[in-house]
Design a protein around this nucleic acid. Structure first.
Length: 197
DNA sequence: GGTATGATTGACT
DNA sequence: GTCAATCATACCA
């Protein structure tokens, strides 16, 4: 990956995900994520890597994490707390567990469909949080392993520069100090405001 | 086999 | 702020 600006307002360039997750993650802020034409602009993500204990891949591949260890550019959709689904975008190379968790979108397309799926009207509660994102986009474990460069998925580069802030990750107890949460510094659609310093 | 723990959310005090 | 929901996985016996 060299110059993203060459691809502005188009699809993601080939090889975009074939990099370490903490390099891919900030580049995803401002990218539009759609599933069957419904979705919005990514404003918050977190990176996870096999070598740190917060990663689902830390203890090696399992039935649940096989797509996480698969080729980059695919979805890894896992259940959280037995209730919610969370969408990850697989990075790195096959055989290595690296992924970016999509934590929040600014809803831009298919608002009514997302409201119906979420059972809520407030646009700030449609996609603010990983479980909410998956629910709004209609994603479940059935979508685990799907390619991200083919329908129903679509990823489009943003057209404007985005100010990316970096903070520790949320909701984990291991490797909690790693600064691998990336967010649009000015967006109101993030799951939680930037941590006070 | 039993128990503890989540990459969370929504309801409630 | 606290806490239950709900289940696959991890870890210990």
């Amino acid at each position: 990956m060299s110059d993203l600006s060459l691809y502005r307002s188009g699809h993601l360039p080939p090889g975009f995900f074939a990099r370490p997750a903490d390099e891919v993650a900030p580049d995803l802020i401002g990218v539009t994520l759609l599933v069957d034409g419904v979705g919005g602009r990514i404003v918050e993500v977190e990176a996870y890597d096999q070598d740190e204990p917060a990663s689902h891949g830390f203890r090696g591949p399992t039935e649940r994490t096989k797509s996480l260890f698969g080729p980059p550019g695919r979805a890894y959709v896992h259940r959280s707390h037995g209730i919610h689904w969370c969408l990850n975008l697989v990075c790195g190379r096959e055989g290595r567990a690296a992924a970016v968790l999509v934590r929040a979108l600014e809803p831009t397309q298919g608002l009514e469909q997302m409201r119906a799926r979420r059972g809520r009207d407030d646009p700030y509660l449609l996609c603010a949080g990983p479980g909410r994102v998956a629910q709004a986009l209609g994603l479940t474990g059935a979508n685990d392993g799907y390619r991200l460069d083919a329908p129903p998925f679509e990823l489009l580069l943003g057209t404007a520069e985005t100010d990316v802030a970096t903070t520790p990750r949320i909701g984990i107890t291991k490797a909690a100090e790693l600064p691998w949460r990336f967010l649009d510094a000015h967006s109101r659609f993030v799951s939680r405001p930037r941590r006070r310093s």
